[in-house]
Amino acid sequence: MGEIPDDGRLHPAIIWISGGFGNDIGGVWGEHPADNDQAATPFRKAGVVMMFPSQRGGNGNPGYDESGFGEIDDILAAADFLAKQKGIDTNRIYLGGHSTGGTKVLLAAECSKRFRAVFSFGPALSMDNYGAEELAYDTKDKRESELRSPMNWLPSISTPVFVFEGKGGNAEMLQALSELSENPRNPYTHYYLIRGKNHFSVLQPVCKLLAAAVVADTTAKVTMDFGEALSALK
């Protein structure tokens, strides 16, 4: 977790779940390339406290990789820990993630109202979209996949969720999720397909907009809207 300023003020914070397989965390605190910033550095540079939790089985933690099942409990436990730290505004804890991390944070949003807003980059319809060779459960077991399928639980979302993907990335996944959120319509979900970006290059420019929005998000109700700003991205 990043350093929390000891200035007597309460600060916003975000928990970030990086992409890839396995539950370790690596070099998240250094500089990252503009076209693949999986550590979402704009939040840190904007002064938002960042937490990168390793999940079960990762970095020597007990348990084992469950590919998006028990890890959701780990994410919620990380939020509980973060909320107990001095200097954290408990009403302004956000959650974000990319790729497999984006899928996990979408699942977390579907089962909890713990976060003020959730930012999901490039999620899948289901964990089994990633391929059986990458996953720690029996993908032939229909129930195991159903439990890890964000597309099945979209109506349960009741906190603001913003989903992003580059047009050159997994655009069909975003389009499918968007259509499922329309039947029935869920007003808490927002989907953005970013032209001129792919699954990776979408991260840094969009996170810059999100970081600024988080810093400015001090009203009682979340009023974020990124449509106009995202359409202007180059």
Rank of each mutant, 00 (worst) to 15 (best):
G102T: 05
D80C: 02
T219Q: 15
D6W: 00
N91E: 13
I194G: 02
D65F: 09
W29K: 12
T100G: 10
F69L: 11
H98A: 11
A83Y: 00
H199D: 08
G196A: 12
V215W: 08
G8V: 08
S158Q: 11
L107K: 02
I17K: 04
D217E: 12
L107V: 04
V163T: 10
Y137A: 00
W153G: 12
L174K: 09
Y130F: 05
N129W: 01
L10Y: 02
G20M: 12
N91M: 12
F226Y: 08
N36R: 12
E146T: 07
P123L: 09
V105P: 04
S201F: 07
S18G: 14
P12T: 10
L209F: 06
N186Q: 08
A13Y: 00
S158I: 03
M173R: 11
I88D: 07
A211Y: 01
F162D: 09
E66Q: 11
N36D: 15
V222M: 13
T100F: 12
D225I: 13
A232W: 09
V202E: 04
P150T: 04
V118E: 00
G57K: 03
N129S: 07
K234M: 15
P205G: 12
G122P: 06
F226H: 05
E134H: 02
G97R: 10
A220K: 15
L125N: 00
P123Q: 11
D73Y: 00
H32Y: 03
C207Y: 06
A232K: 15
L193T: 08
Q85P: 12
K197Y: 11
P187M: 04
A220C: 15
N61G: 02
A83Q: 09
K113N: 11
I88S: 04
T189H: 05
G27L: 12
L107R: 03
G47A: 13
D6G: 04
Y191W: 13
G57W: 05
F115S: 05
A124R: 04
K113G: 09
A34R: 15
E133Q: 05
D24S: 13
V48Y: 10
E165F: 10
P62F: 08
I25H: 09
T90F: 06
Y192E: 07
L177N: 06
G27S: 13
G26V: 11
S231F: 08
V105H: 00
K234A: 15
E3C: 05
S178A: 14
T41D: 10
K84H: 07
A13I: 09
Q175E: 15
G30L: 14
W153V: 10
E3M: 11
P42A: 13
A132M: 01
K113T: 12
A109Q: 01
L76I: 09
D73I: 06
A124D: 06
T219W: 12
D89L: 13
H98K: 11
Y191G: 12
F52T: 09
N91G: 14
A212H: 12
A40N: 12
